[in-house]
């Protein structure tokens, strides 16, 4: 199951025509304690780059963009009661939403893990 990364610090796991999206370990470390996550409603359609979710720390609110186009099939309901999951396990239990992909070939411009690591190291 390939995992891709964006320059906006989202990660995306692709499994056939479904994908899971979250924010990276680096992103959570920059935000500090996450206090609130607003996830998208099921059925919502996104184009690549659309604002899809909002993640809030005490002093900052950041938009999370959809790395690819697709329709939301599920949002992580756990985050409502326990936004700290994003701090504790951003690239696992702290996932944001799942998408039904509109185009399974739309991964140009996304990075693999090694490239993303190199990208972050330069920041």
């Amino acid at each position: 199951m390939p995992r891709y990364f964006t320059e906006d610090h989202e990660w995306i796991d692709v499994d056939g025509d479904t994908a899971t999206v979250g924010i990276t370990e680096y992103a959570q470390s920059q935000l500090g304690d996450i206090v609130f996550v607003e996830t998208p409603e099921t059925g919502k359609q996104f184009s690549k780059g659309d604002e899809a979710a909002v993640v809030e720390s005490v002093k900052a609110a950041s938009d999370v963009y959809s790395p690819v186009s697709g329709t939301v099939t599920e949002a992580n309901g756990e985050l409502e009661d326990n936004p700290a999951l994003v701090n504790d396990d951003p690239e696992g239990e702290g996932w944001f939403f799942k998408l039904n992909l509109a185009d399974t070939g739309e991964f140009e411009g996304l990075m693999d893990e090694a490239k993303y690591k190199a990208f972050v190291d330069k920041l």
Binding site: V35, F36, E56, V58, P83, A84
Partner: peptide, 10 residues
């Protein structure tokens, strides 16, 4: 002392 703003917001 410093106040826990994270708890206040969560």
């Amino acid at each position: 002392r410093r106040l826990d703003e994270t708890q206040a917001a969560r």
